[in-house]
């Protein structure tokens, strides 16, 4: 508290003022306005708003598309945790293993490269891969003699959502892998050596040494992926043209966008935003709790 007595009391305020103003006007004001907007019905191109009370919320409860969107977001979350986090960890452990020291950095860089591509480029690329007639995937299945597996990947309600989820895994697994890699590198070499002296198997070493050390980052990575799964927008927007066929691959973010800007229901879109907000608050609280346990 020593430093608090120097200078004018205005000075510290000046330092933080730009930050506070920016956050206030462009983050917190919109957040609050959302609650207000969700009680109205209005369109993007008219200045008049119609007060309808809780009508939007009633609509929301009955809306089957909201259910589809939430289920899809949950599917995203589950698959992403399994592949990006669990598989990403295994991948990092393999690449950091001594026997792969030579080739590790090479694979690491390659696996990380998709992360650096813009998601819209990735989605356009997968448009070519999933193309029903001339697409790489269906053509590949033809070549390897598995033509019965060919499908209109993005055109069938059964496969569209999974095909979309797969794109995210291709794009982001390298990111989580990199987080694990860095934290595995921080584990002191002696621990592994001690383990080796005991003649422990590699899988045992992974369980005994690696896992406890990456526990915290494992939780963090899980929270990041789950949070990200509830924000998915670009993949269904670009690949399945807004969550098609029908609404089978729609997500909350895409539905929010469509309601507000295509179906011209800005008030309802605000209500959907509140749902997303509640979900992110729950996740944040969960994260905070995990962090407390991580720090003990």
């Amino acid at each position: 508290m020593k430093s608090s007595c120097r200078g004018s009391s205005l000075e510290p305020l000046l330092f933080t003022l730009p930050c506070i103003v920016m956050l206030g006007v462009f983050v917190y004001l919109p957040l609050i306005q959302n609650f207000y907007f969700s009680l109205y019905s209005f369109s993007a191109f008219s200045p008049n708003k119609l007060f309808i009370g809780l009508e939007n919320y009633r609509l929301l409860v009955d809306d089957p598309v909201v259910r589809t969107a939430l289920i899809n977001n949950v599917r995203y979350a589950v698959i992403s945790v399994l592949i990006q986090v669990c598989f990403g960890l295994v991948l990092a452990a393999i690449l950091e293993d001594k026997s792969f020291k030579r080739v590790g950095p090479f694979f690491r860089t390659v696996f990380f490269m998709p992360v650096l591509m813009s998601i819209s480029v990735v989605c356009l690329l997968f448009g070519f891969i999933y193309h029903p007639i001339d697409g790489l995937l269906n053509q590949f299945l033809e070549i390897v003699g598995l033509p019965f597996l060919q499908r209109p990947w993005l055109g069938s309600a059964r496969t569209a959502i999974w095909a979309t989820i797969a794109v995210s895994q291709w794009h982001s697994t390298g990111y989580i892998m990199m987080l694990f890699l860095v934290s595995i590198q921080k584990i002191p070499e002696e621990l592994y050596e001690a383990c080796e002296l005991d003649g422990a198997h590699k899988i045992t070493r992974f369980r005994v040494v690696t896992l406890p050390h990456v526990k915290e980052i494992f939780f963090v990575a899980s929270v990041i992926t789950v949070t990200g799964s509830f924000m998915v927008f670009s993949e269904p927007y670009i690949l399945t043209r807004g969550g098609g066929p029908g609404t089978s691959s729609i997500t909350m973010a895409v539905y929010l966008y469509q309601s507000g800007f295509f179906r011209d229901m800005m008030g309802y879109a605000s209500t959907l935003a509140i749902v997303i907000f509640v979900i992110s608050v729950v996740l944040a609280v969960f994260q905070a709790m995990v962090f407390r346990t991580g720090k003990e």
């Binding site: 069938s156 309600a157 098609g244 066929p245 029908g246």
Partner: peptide
């Protein structure tokens, strides 16, 4: 939109 999306779902066997 209800017509277009809906019939799209019918075409893909979803509705």
């Amino acid at each position: 939109d209800a017509f277009m999306r809906g019939v799209q779902s019918v075409a893909s066997g979803d509705m």
